[in-house]
Design a protein around this nucleic acid. Sequence first.
DNA 1: CTACAACAATTGTATATACAAATGTAAGAT
DNA 2: ATCTTACATTTGTATATACAATTGTTGTAG
Lengths: 148, 148
Amino acid sequence: MNVEMILKTEKPIALESRSLIHLILVSNKVNEQYASALKEYDISQQQFNVLRILRGQKGKAANLQTLNERMISKQSNTTRLVDKLLNKGLVNRMVCPSNRRKIEITITEEGKALLLKLDKIVSRTEDELLSGFSNEDLRQLNNLLDKF
Amino acid sequence: MNVEMILKTEKPIALESRSLIHLILVSNKVNEQYASALKEYDISQQQFNVLRILRGQKGKAANLQTLNERMISKQSNTTRLVDKLLNKGLVNRMVCPSNRRKIEITITEEGKALLLKLDKIVSRTEDELLSGFSNEDLRQLNNLLDKF
DNA sequence: CTACAACAATTGTATATACAAATGTAAGAT
DNA sequence: ATCTTACATTTGTATATACAATTGTTGTAG
């Protein structure tokens, strides 16, 4: 990926700035690829993310707060995001009987079925994005990212 | 940075998925740090980015297309973004005399003065973000990011 | 010169996000 | 029981972004 095009705009770019901008550029690219892969099914990345979290619950419900904590992108509109999924019939929602402040969300069969399709195209996208990487590269990358 | 919290949601996460999600999480964190550092001056990251591009032009004007190409985040609202900077008096804008389709943007003295202040706080933010990194780490990171 | 395609920027619209304020519920203190 | 505080979600609002359609300009083929 060509980061030089951007970085040439300021001549003596410190190694630090370069790394961070580079990181953001790559992340944007990755996000775009995910988004474009999911677009066919009218699912945003965040929605996909929530569906995967729910599937990971194996039947147990997740309340909005839990979703919020585990979502890739930070706190904001979990309510509205779940509304969208609800309208599509991909999740169920019920007030928690033991604590009526909480709202419990579960994935529907329809949601699971959709996820199965999405898994395939997402993993194809990931393969493409990482075609230049060996397993050793990936381990190294993870180690470096852990330092943040 | 704790990626496990998110990743525990799906049990057998492939190394590839893990790396990409990890990357996005880190990038989000970096973006948040930049945003919060710039917030004090009511400048968004994209606005900061454009100002830096303009400064890098050393007096030469940049048209909207050029800005667009060099902006960190992809094509969208360069017109509106520049409008904001214009309202703040940080840039000038004039129709290109040789090709009236183009709009030429330059940074004002006020814009340059602001950038000088921003440079300081941004570089402090970068230092914090990368405090765990040696120069060798940064080089490695850049090499890996280049593989995308 | 006119018609047409390509170009550069702008506008419209729908959706997404950040952030603060408001609503409704639960728990604890007096 | 009442008051206060904390909790969980929802709503409002301003801003940001994606994407398509539109406007105005230039270049070119006939």
